[in-house]
Amino acid sequence: MSWHHKLKGRMVVQLAKAMPSAYNRFTLKLTENKKDKVGASLDRPLEEARVALITSAGVHMKKDEPFDALSDGDYSFRIIPADTGVEELEVTHIYYDTKHANVDKTIVFPLPQLRESAAQGKIRSVSDMNIGLNGGTLKPERHERETTPVVVDLLKKDNVNIALLVPG
């Protein structure tokens, strides 16, 4: 049923572009009200922190399998090492206009700027476990139940202290 997903994707992109307020209200209405509060705090100076970048904008390496955007949801993830060049990246997503991200991947995945922060000594290092996800789904349960624990485990094993999340 890929035509169905293509059509839905085009409608969502057009709604976001033509009526951003309506799109925001629509998204907010469908967002689940979470009761639990996450109170984790940084346990060291920023200069000693190892930092990972996570994006839900469908970023992955060109050599990796693209996300299955034309489906009811792709709950897999891709690992993007710290030294990856932007020319090695690709964007696969149908629920936002990827026109800008396709010409400059850093717009949704500012990995070079995070590396620059490390080079300037603002942080200790950039993780090799930077994560690309495909957030284009109205059913986040599988991302929460299946994807998140695996990603969190990888970040912990890589001694990550801060995870920066960027949407599409």
């Binding site: 976001a16 920023l46 400059d104 717009i107 949704v108 070079p112 620059e116 801060i162 920066l164």
Partner: peptide
């Protein structure tokens, strides 16, 4: 805007500032 969460294409100065603010 949606699709440009860290600024406009090739505006690397803004991109660096976004990362700085997040950190």
């Amino acid at each position: 805007k949606l699709g440009r969460p860290c600024g406009e294409p090739f505006d690397f100065e803004t991109r660096q500032e976004v990362v700085h603010q997040m950190l």
